[in-house]
Design a protein around this nucleic acid. Structure first.
Lengths: 99, 99
DNA sequence: CATATACTTGGTCGTTTTGTCAAACATCAA
DNA sequence: TTGATGTTTGACAAAACGACCAAGTATATG
């Protein structure tokens, strides 16, 4: 594999990796419906607020979500809606295995 | 989040996580073309054969690929072709950022 | 049977990721 | 300004990951 091809593959993999955590994936799926502030996202994943914030920063570095400060709240929104399409396909596969 | 919902989210995340490594992703993309034996996959990722084998076992546990022993070779094939669709979407997003 | 080939598994070790706490920061309201 | 609220950041320990080597299993072949 050539060097620039490796870099591209790494960049792609980083996106998948960011989604490879149940809390982060749950937040991304929730953001598929609407933008949400950190406090609302925390209710979804039920973790320490600092943990939630760090997960969000992982998603943001990967370019999957973007943040928008409104007053003292920060709203996150989904930048890559096609993620949801893949989740649906994954769900179909999981359903075949009894999920 | 309820317990079974958490399990589902974990299973989904495991799929993403399995794809979150450049070697594994490269192999999955290659398998999108055709089934390949471990030896051919090794040529693609250029790692130790034992490393390749372990990566493949991660992909298999996640349900992304399946294996089929033919003689002394083991052929792997892609179980979730929709993965490639998401890769294309990721590539579009990466392209917008200069890749 | 003995050997070679194709692959998997176990062990080790350095690196990365996670979660938590405390502290910092930003914004609003009294 | 002071305090309350919402979020981020730094530090640190525990856990998971990734790569390599060695050893193990399975299958074909001489």
């Amino acid at each position: 594999m050539k060097k620039n091809e490796q870099k591209l593959m790494q960049a792609r993999a980083d996106m998948f990796k960011a989604l490879g955590h149940p809390a982060r994936l749950a937040m991304v799926i929730a953001l598929g419906e609407q933008s949400l502030c950190v406090c609302e996202l925390q209710k979804i994943v039920e973790s320490d607020i600092s943990t939630v914030s760090k997960h969000l920063s992982v998603l943001r570095s990967a370019g999957l979500v973007e943040s928008d400060k409104q007053g003292k709240q920060v709203f996150y929104s989904l930048r890559l809606p096609c993620t949801l399409g893949f989740v649906r396909c994954v769900d179909k596969a999981l359903a075949e295995r009894g999920y």
